[in-house]
């Protein structure tokens, strides 16, 4: 017997597009995150170099990764909601 979801979900026509969008956004974030890890591993002294406002790269990059995750999350939700509203509405009409 296969397992059923906890609640019944309606048909969602936007799944393939949302999946593609998720993969693209994941890849973008992964590249930025990998950049931080690579700099930390291969060129650690660069993280101490000062940039904007006298702050070093470690602080700016680290904080940037946290803020970027929040901003990308909001963008992703905006587009997913729009896709769901548009494609599922077309399906109904």
């Amino acid at each position: 017997m296969l397992h059923e979801p906890a609640v019944e979900l309606g048909k969602d026509k936007s799944i393939p597009k949302k999946t593609r969008l998720g993969v693209v956004m994941f890849l973008i974030y992964m590249v930025v995150y990998s950049g931080f890890v690579v700099i930390g591993t291969m060129f650690p002294e660069a993280l101490g170099v000062k940039f904007i406002g006298g702050q070093n790269l470690a602080f700016l990059y680290g904080m940037g990764l946290i803020v970027l995750a929040i901003v990308m999350g909001l963008i992703y939700n905006f587009f997913c909601t729009r896709l769901e509203d548009k494609l599922n509405k077309e399906e109904q009409s």
């Binding site: 998720g22 993969v23 956004m25 974030y29 995750a69 990308m72």
Partner: peptide
């Protein structure tokens, strides 16, 4: 960063 994987 792990939450990005979870969300996307």
């Amino acid at each position: 960063a792990g939450w990005v994987v979870a969300l996307f």
